[in-house]
């Protein structure tokens, strides 16, 4: 019965070791996919190389189908899975800021670490900027607290919000993903796939 950690199959220390292994392999495969390279990542925003979109959406769909099917087979208690709490407006604004930073800097927080580890100087600048931003946010937190909690909805899932079964949501997300894949391909052809 999964999640293994919540059922006490291994201790917190073992969990940390597993997290380390997962984290290192995550970074490794990001690098191998070319995500340690800001120019490739930035091409996303000019519709010339939709790899990021494809990778992220594939990951989302695989994880979603896996979790739901495992729960359907009774292998996994999905209610015990941690869900990021939703703060609708705060996350919208935060997402926009992150997107702008992504387009300017060519990295997102995860990939900037990958870039830094492989020795890209721009990634160090990006990381420094991210740290500085965290510091500023932390210092300004009292005045930003209202924004931070704006649109708090708790640990909700799409199926809770729209009051439909999670299977139907899964199908909708799958269809959405396929449309995005096809749309991405179309955009790549239209704006010309640029070699690196």
């Amino acid at each position: 019965m999964a999640p293994f950690f919540k059922y006490g199959f291994f201790t917190e220390q073992t969990g940390l070791i597993i997290a380390l292994i997962l984290g290192v392999s995550f970074g490794f495969w990001l690098e191998r996919a070319g995500f340690g390279y800001s120019r490739k990542l930035a091409l996303q925003f000019y519709f010339k190389d939709m790899t990021v979109l494809n990778v992220m959406f594939t990951a989302i769909v695989v994880a979603m189908l896996g979790l739901l099917l495992f729960s359907l087979f009774g292998w996994l208690d999905i209610t015990k899975i941690y869900i990021n709490p939703t703060y609708l407006w705060a996350q919208l604004i935060g997402g926009l800021i992150l997107g702008v930073g992504f387009a300017i800097g060519g990295y997102c927080p995860g990939t900037s670490v990958v870039g830094a580890v492989t020795g890209h100087v721009d990634a160090y600048f990006f990381l420094g900027g991210a740290m500085f931003g965290m510091f500023v946010f932390g210092e300004m937190f009292p005045s930003l607290e209202g924004l931070y909690n704006w649109g708090a909805m708790g640990d909700v899932r799409l199926s809770d919000v729209f009051n439909i079964s999670s299977g139907v949501v899964a199908l909708a997300v799958v269809i959405l993903a396929i449309l995005f894949f096809l749309g991405g391909e179309w955009l790549e052809n239209k704006f010309g796939k640029e070699g690196l």
């Binding site: 729960s71 079964s165 999670s166 299977g167 799958v174």
Partner: peptide, 11 residues
């Protein structure tokens, strides 16, 4: 897989 889920009692 999406179709299977849509018609199965996941919840």
């Amino acid at each position: 897989l999406g179709l299977i889920l849509a018609f199965s009692p996941v919840d």
